[in-house]
Nucleic acid binder design. Sequence first.
RNA 1: GGGCUCGUGGUGUAGCGGCCUAACAUGCCAGCCUGUCACGCUGGAGAUCGCCGGUUCGAAUCCGGUCGAGCCCGCCA
Length: 650
Amino acid sequence: MAAMSEPSQPITTPQAAFGLATPYRDVTCGELGAADAGREIRIAGWVHRRRDYGGLIFIDLRDRYGLTQIVINEAEAPEAAAVAGKVRSEFVLEIAGKVARRLPGTENAKLGTGEIEVQARSVTILNEAQTPPFYINEPDAPVEESVRLRYRYLDIRRQPMLERLLLRSELVKAVRDAHHRAGFVEVETPILMKSTPEGARDFIVPSRLQPGSVYALPQSPQQLKQLLMVAGLDRYFQIARCFRDEDLRGDRQPEFTQLDLEMSFVDEQRVMDFVEAMIIDVSRAVVPDRPIRQLPFPRIDYHEAMERFGSDKPDLRFGMELVDLVPALGEGSTGFRVFDETLAQDDASGVTRGRVKAIAAPSMADASRSQIDELVAFARRYGAKGLAHVAVAADGTGHSPIAKFLGDDRIAAIVKAAAAAPGDLILIVADSDQETVAQVLGHLRQELGLRLGLADPKVLAYCWVSHFPMYKWDSDGQRWDATHNPFSGVVPEDEKLLVTVSGDPYKPSRQDPAGKARAMQYDIVLNGWELGGGSVRIHKRELLERSFALQGYSLDKMRALFGGILEAFDYGAPPHGGIAMGIDRWAALFAYQTNIREVMAFPKTQSGTDLMLEAPAPPEPAQYSELGLRFVGTETPDGDRAVAGQEVGK
RNA sequence: GGGCUCGUGGUGUAGCGGCCUAACAUGCCAGCCUGUCACGCUGGAGAUCGCCGGUUCGAAUCCGGUCGAGCCCGCCA
């Protein structure tokens, strides 16, 4: 270690180590000020706008650092004026001239460089440009996203995209800095990998050297980072590209970036403490103007989150919590058949799972019939059979279409239970499945919180949600499916629950105690988005095999899928745990975006295509034979076979 | 796999059975202009309304299909 060379000067800003001057320019378009008046300089950039007065031409020259006004005076520089007359938007120019203070009264306060202008001696066209397909110089002008994606390189010239990419760069830098400060080692894991047991569909890459075999692109570096803990790296992180071949959404792309980290000799507390400190550092460095709602971050148990917010990713910027109405409805028949039948439902173990819960939406009591209908339709999308409502009048009394069934006393009790204020609209969901109730009210709460402006867009409300159930029963597969990561450890006091009624871990059933086991699993949530999730892993082979058995993996299948990691665990795996966080989502939330495409340089459309590169595309014929592949296409209902873009021989 | 929305000059929109020989803004081209910075003024070019088919005397406008984009459910953490 001592033999390592002394570190060179730390690179704090680009200028400090390696100036922005190049053979084409002495200065950028963002740096000249009044103090530079009189300097002879060369400057280069794109034509943002040109204003031609005949004998006098103004050009706003743009690069990513800013805008600088160039003046070309025909009387003083006739050759430059002749060139400037031919210049059009987005031409690339090199200007030589003199920095001068603007005439009094013509300064532009909106421009960082607005005190000065460059009086051009010469104008050189470095490259011409076609008229761009949309406005680059008007940042707010709406453009259909598909057009922006097709010409993404022009879209990125526009201020908003540029700013978001710079913000993302700052985010990644802050993340790296925080990890290096804490002694983490950055390791790159392979992109050509073997299938990871994450549950999503893999992207497959055929192997030429091993005909008939394929690589899988990583859904996450999960197994490798655990192996790095076995290897003794102690603290690892990576800004990792991950791939999942599933349908896209505004917050889901087929390839995305995760901050992936793992630590050894830790418990849940230690991992969460580090991650929380790191998040605070990063937030303060990247978006110092945005207040963090609560420190330390609230830590909420999964069950509590579902009860109070109907979501495992609650938006804590506002209240509007879910209320259980069952106590308020009292004993015996409520008079309303929907409620009665719901509450009469018992599950297999005899426990009542049916629920009647509500939220109170402020200032919505005067919602119109069509507004109510829209809310009902919204609720139905998430599985509700209906949505009852009680409007709270100015005098505090509740008014509802179901009052005729429930009676005034029960309506009053509901208003009281919901802690509803005059003007509130109480929205009630009853269902025999408590998860449906939570899901519906959780989505209503989130949606109304945003619509009613209850969520301060500036606030960063981070929170932890932890102790997820280890497993969820998969009735199709007759097995316990890991709710998150199949390597997640069990909360120590629940370890005894990882058994089956049958006594054979390979014969799981719905009634197993395993269904009640809680995982050492924690999600980090920001403003209603799941930013990331992690766990303390099982590091002992015996327990891991037991957990996998419950998940329906036979010994043989276990060896085939996880042989490498199982073997490694025999060579001294330390206790370890970590987390993975979505960089794209984090950047999007920092940038006030609801769509991660807005913080990705070259995202894909919802159908998984790249409109600029026109990817994916059919392979070259030579590639088929090299890889030993033949596309048989997709069978259509008429028995024809089709492969996009080509005929397939019979 | 499913539901919903959208597709009109380069861009963004209006028009939603005949009055459309498709309008407006901006952009583009030409001319004029020496202090603008969303410069201004004058003139001009530019779309047959995503594509295919149907209904109709008549379709940008209605219907069906298809392609593309978006949001959502499923899927996915």
